[in-house]
Design a protein around this nucleic acid. Structure first.
Lengths: 199, 199
DNA sequence: GTCTATACGGGGATAGAC
DNA sequence: GTCTATCCCCGTATAGAC
């Protein structure tokens, strides 16, 4: 039997974060009320403040958590292989990772403006770190003569935008599998940076 | 001498739209109050309702106006030239047009979820129309043997995302002119669809 | 066409009982 | 740790005077 009152500190915290992530992604940070979040979790609004200082800190914590997870996941993949293999791994990793966490990705791009300047700077730095790994790969490949990348910074922006864009249109019920999508984007990427072979 | 009261119907309407566009882009639709918009325009909140039925209709009208302008502007450019020239023109047109209207572009991507289903369907149809012109160019070029585009639909998504992404990073005070940016993106586009020459 | 005033609901956040 | 109750502010939208 579920208790309607009492201590649930171990599960309520995560549930608040899950509910907030989903609601912020669906309706936008400003449009979601603390009462809505509480209602999803099954507690009263006041109880939320046992877990978070305020609404803004909740958003910042979600975004920071997402960026930390993303960087850790990429670090776990990025170890071996030559430059071309690293680039291919980045392309496939980015598409897959984003498709698996649409809510977190959506919020990360849409709700940055609702952060305080301090929180914004922190999240931006993490994002910059992630994007720099791609830029590093492009520069390495260019210097090694494997790629032709006249402007690594711009190419990084272009690639990130292109890859992240998959989230706006891909549906698992559609005509393409995730693997097929990754193949297509890897082909486009390879051509964009003029990698030597199309094998 | 400015009147503090009286009739200004000819200028208040446009000023409401300009203020709303700017504020929605800056803070998000849900976070902006009618009182804020009125204050920017220099009227009381109640006076806004002489021009718009409600807040939601104001947003829909801004988005519809933007899409109408976009389609008209592209129609005015799209008349002549072979397929490769048309594609190059699309790339440069899209980047320039977006950079000149950052607020409208931002809102068009961020605030779609705040539209009623009817308004959303309308705006989406206009956006689809615009993107279809690009897909048409890619299909034409592929069939004519000028491009190699295995999946025109996905390539369209990829190109639109890549080009629209310029707005997130470009600053006129930065190291690149708009022309240089267009050149870089056109090179990347040409390679992506494997257009015959790189001249 | 704009004003003032206001209706009415809902927002974030806190206090104190249990 | 959660509840109920509440504070205080602000939201959209309307009514009626000028």
């Amino acid at each position: 039997m579920a208790r309607t009152q009492g201590s649930h500190s171990d599960i309520t915290g995560p549930r608040i974060r899950e509910a907030a992530l989903r609601l912020f992604a669906r309706h936008g940070f400003a449009a979601v009320s603390m009462r809505q979040i509480a209602s999803e979790v099954g507690v009263q609004a006041g109880a939320l403040y046992n877990y978070i200082p305020d609404k803004q800190a909740l958003l910042a914590s979600l975004l920071r958590g997402h960026m930390d997870d993303l960087l850790a996941a990429w670090q776990a993949e990025a170890t071996t292989g030559d430059t071309t293999e690293k680039l291919e791994r980045f392309v496939r990793f980015h598409i897959r990772y984003n498709l698996e966490r649409p809510d977190a990705i959506f919020i990360s791009y849409m709700e940055l403006r609702n952060l305080t300047p301090e929180n914004f700077a922190q999240i931006e730095a993490l994002r910059k770190t992630y994007e720099s790994t791609l830029e590093g790969i492009l520069r390495d490949g260019h210097e090694a003569g494997r790629f032709d990348v006249p402007d690594p910074a711009v190419t990084t922006y272009a690639l990130i935008a292109m890859l992240t864009g998959v989230n706006t249109w891909y549906r698992s019920a559609g005509r393409l599998t995730v693997d097929e999508v990754c193949d297509i984007y890897w082909t486009m990427t390879r051509r964009m940076i003029a990698a030597s072979s199309e094998a």
